[in-house]
Design a protein around this nucleic acid. Sequence first.
DNA 1: CGAGTCC
DNA 2: TCGTCTGACACAAGACTCG
DNA 3: TGTGTCAGACGAA
Length: 348
Amino acid sequence: MGITKLADLIRFHAPDAISHKEISDFTGKVIALDTSIVVNQFRAATPTLSPLTGLFFRTLTFLEHDIKPVFVFDGKPPEEKTAALEKRAEAASWKCPNLTGTASSQTKDCLHLLKLLGVPFIQAPGDAEALCAQLVREGTADAVASEDMDTLPFGANILIRQLNAKRDSEVVEYSLPKLLEKLQISQEEFVDLCILLGCDYCDKITGLGPKKALTLIQKHRTIENVVLHINRQTHPVPHFWKYKEARKIFLDAPQTVDPKLIWTEPDEEALVGFLCHVKYVKVERVRRRMERFRQTRESKREERERDKAAGRSRQTRMEDFFRVTRKREQPVEAADSSSSNRKRPKST
DNA sequence: CGAGTCC
DNA sequence: TCGTCTGACACAAGACTCG
DNA sequence: TGTGTCAGACGAA
């Protein structure tokens, strides 16, 4: 999967690259999402029901916060990844969908749903994570939301985890520039570090964990030099180690036409027709959620109008304010300016 | 809020 | 001997609604 | 299916 040990490494060696926020801090931002990750989350959480409803609810929550999501779909995974995929598919008798490039019915349903929601989606040539990162690099998106850490070696400046629709969700933001500065390594060296930590694209050197790998990279800067300085007897290099290919996958940007992303109003009637008629979701649920969606949006719009009328003298950006005040451990009780507030003290 | 339900 | 890596294991993973 | 914790093994001072 992703580089699991990377999260621990960052937490320990570069905690300044991590900041805790909440959903409302991302108002107005364009967020790229790996669709397969999201759908798999819903499938894992509720195996008996369709992940479409989860996608429906969560996307509406994003839109309520004026977050502009763009969903990226996996293309054909690179050759190097098939080994990891086969190993994973072997454990679970679940078919790997996109080895052939044919879109599964699940994927088509997701595409249809997103179209009805008025949310743009992109087909990645290869790994969705790679394209998500590329969107951030070229400025098309502001951040990528994923549970998978390997968007960072792909070059996404900002990674957001735990971005869900829970009311009191703690969102975790990883800053790649801060991380590189703290670790005192370049992006290329960071990619080598991630390869040493263990990624999907090639083997790793057994016996080298996070601590040693970081130290070695900081000292010798490249995998080639690291290999020269370690004990080859105790830490044998894998046979036919394809680390160069893995490095290339991380560093080479996927070729893509820079897409025009357009968000339109959700088509409620079509959504009811699709979710309720075809997917047998309770009509009441969809209607009620759409009602809440419109209501939330209206109040936000009114709030914005009021702020605009109040003048620009108080135009200090909310996110900047939070960024300064928010500390790591204790989430600061935000300034409740007015109206609807569901903030709750943790202990009563 | 917590337990139950969604499909 | 300590620090570090590995492997085995338990566990939870979404979002809404009603009481 | 991934993640956190805890047992133990092994290499590095």
